[in-house]
Computed example of a mutant assay.
Amino acid sequence: MTAPWPYPRWIAHRGAGRLAPENTLAAFRLGAQHGFRMFECDAKLSSDGVPFLMHDPTLERTTNGKGTGGVLPWSELAQLDAGGWHSRLYAGEPLPTLENLARYCLANGFLLNIEIKPTPGTEEQTGRVVAEQAARMWQGQAVPPLLSSFQPQALAGAQAAAPHLPRALLLDTLWDGWADVARQLGCVALVCNYALWDAALVDKARGLGMRTLSYTVNDEWAAERLIALGTDGIITDRVDLFSPAG
């Protein structure tokens, strides 16, 4: 029997999709202005172990820095401009720590899907530290964050550090053994590339006792298909297109 699911269907990708610089507090504020109450973010570690928000292993695309983000201490990462690449409006927007975002979400009653996005070679450590901080920040809260990752090692680290926090396996392809890995990791959900979902996969996930979420859904036809399949969650960039009340 699948446990009750405390999360809404609609989840804003990296805060507000492409309308604001991803994984910045400005993006989460904009997503909230569009009515979203749950967000997805990416978390990795600085060289001194501070979880911060960034998708790519390297800094160039979304900051004015250069090289691998995870090799720098937080004191240097905190100085970077994470908004100017997007538009002049957001120039000077800093990289947030996971703690910054946690405080924002907790203060406003928002829910969070934290994708553990380790710098290559730090999978287990990143999963462990992110889960430890999430457990501490959300202690006593009715609805904890959902921890997800493409990296089984990262989820294993999270499972060891905070087994009570819900975990989800991210899948871009249905690689051999994914179901066994998800079961071993105690995952409560699968988060798949939306094109992977069909009735058979939904049935398989349900048979494993897992919920069904999709990324990154930016077209109405795709959302309608996923809703018709009975899936549980839709992660979207199009906070301006989809009504999260729908």
Rank of each mutant, 00 (worst) to 15 (best):
84 G>R: 00
42 D>H: 05
194 Y>E: 08
158 A>M: 06
43 A>E: 08
202 V>W: 03
92 G>S: 05
93 E>M: 03
214 S>I: 03
6 P>I: 01
121 G>A: 09
13 H>K: 06
155 L>R: 14
244 P>H: 07
144 P>K: 15
9 R>D: 06
134 A>M: 01
219 D>W: 06
152 P>L: 07
162 A>S: 14
85 W>I: 03
165 L>Q: 10
35 G>Y: 03
202 V>T: 06
44 K>A: 14
61 R>M: 07
131 A>W: 15
135 A>S: 15
42 D>A: 04
218 N>R: 14
97 T>S: 15
176 D>S: 15
240 D>R: 11
195 A>K: 11
7 Y>H: 08
105 C>Y: 07
37 R>M: 00
200 A>G: 01
132 E>C: 15
225 R>C: 10
62 T>F: 02
237 D>T: 12
197 W>T: 11
11 I>G: 12
233 G>M: 00
101 L>H: 11
187 C>Q: 09
40 E>L: 03
24 T>S: 01
10 W>G: 05
110 F>T: 02
124 E>R: 10
41 C>V: 00
163 P>I: 13
218 N>W: 09
189 A>R: 07
214 S>W: 01
128 R>G: 07
19 L>H: 09
136 R>Y: 08
14 R>N: 09
238 R>I: 05
161 A>F: 15
176 D>R: 13
216 T>Y: 07
113 N>A: 06
40 E>F: 05
197 W>K: 06
140 G>V: 09
152 P>H: 03
113 N>G: 05
121 G>H: 04
82 A>F: 05
158 A>T: 13
84 G>H: 02
80 L>S: 08
120 P>D: 01
177 G>C: 13
8 P>R: 02
96 P>C: 06
76 E>V: 11
146 L>K: 01
68 T>C: 14
149 S>L: 08
29 R>C: 04
39 F>A: 01
218 N>D: 15
109 G>F: 08
60 E>P: 02
142 A>E: 09
175 W>K: 12
212 T>F: 02
191 V>K: 10
147 L>M: 11
7 Y>A: 04
150 F>E: 12
86 H>V: 00
67 G>F: 07
75 S>G: 09
105 C>P: 08
86 H>I: 00
234 I>R: 05
66 K>Q: 11
147 L>R: 09
25 L>M: 02
235 I>Q: 04
99 E>M: 10
102 A>T: 06
46 S>L: 04
2 T>P: 13
200 A>W: 01
136 R>D: 07
112 L>D: 00
200 A>Q: 03
136 R>G: 10
143 V>C: 08
182 A>P: 09
56 D>F: 10
231 T>W: 05
139 Q>N: 09
210 M>A: 12
118 P>N: 12
118 P>H: 05
59 L>S: 02
242 F>K: 10
242 F>C: 11
138 W>F: 14
108 N>F: 06
186 G>Y: 08
40 E>Y: 01
75 S>I: 14
164 H>Y: 15
134 A>P: 03
103 R>F: 12
231 T>M: 12
80 L>M: 13
5 W>N: 13
21 P>Y: 01
232 D>R: 05
214 S>G: 12
89 L>I: 04
192 C>S: 12
27 A>L: 00
199 A>N: 02
113 N>P: 00
240 D>K: 13
143 V>H: 07
41 C>H: 10
195 A>Q: 15
105 C>V: 06
74 W>V: 09
215 Y>D: 07
141 Q>R: 13
15 G>V: 04
